[in-house]
Amino acid sequence: MCKECGCTPKRETLNILEDIMKYNQLQAQHNRKRFEKYEILAINLMSAPGSGKTTLLEKTIDFLSSKYSLGVIEGDLETERDAERIRKKGIPVFQITTGSACHLDASLIHKAMHQLPLDKIELLFIENLGNLVCPANYDLGTHLNVTLLSVPEGEDKPEKYPLIFKVSDLILITKIDLLPYLDFNLEKVGESIKKINPKAKVMALSAKTEEGFKDWIEFLEEAYKNYKQSIVHKEL
């Protein structure tokens, strides 16, 4: 009721139904188009801290760098440490330090893209922040989402953190050289991932012993080949 004359002020309800994440979605679409312009296959690597993302990347670079031009965007809260490790391999790398933010978003990737020689990159790896929760909500504009789950983390993680597994195209079980020492049933984990995301591929490897590594490299090469073909089809 209004104070002056006692009338009831008119209220109107607007039906909006707008996606709250729309700004990130728009930026992600923009990034994806830009990647396609440069024919870059972009891969988002996500996991908990210490699952071996940087080690996986170092090893992947060893396998692929003679055949493909690679690039890396590193995300961390603090330090250039991970970028330094990649830089030693002679690969163009840009480090995003988020300060206190718990995830990378599409606009941070957009800014990082301007710092990289895009015309000289075929496969771009984005190492997300070590976090099994927040990165799941942010599409970065990448073509593949890959989540690492290391054996020491335990086989219950997919059930505990389903969202990140749900948005992944591939789940990499890492550090399988530790399987003899820990209770981690690969088959059981595979089944629980299937319930969360029936379309996701699951692979198991060790960056240390290189067991299973070939499958991951073949997966990347196949993905890159298919991606290049899909771009050609788009142009036609």
């Binding site: 008119k10 109107e12 309800t13 607007l14 909006i16 139904l17 996606d19 709250i20 319930k195 029936p198």
Partner: peptide, 21 residues
Amino acid sequence: SFNTEVISGEKILLKTLELMD
């Protein structure tokens, strides 16, 4: 079957706004 699709429960939406002078 695993041939399923999610109908709802994944989104974060701004549903309505109520305005006044």
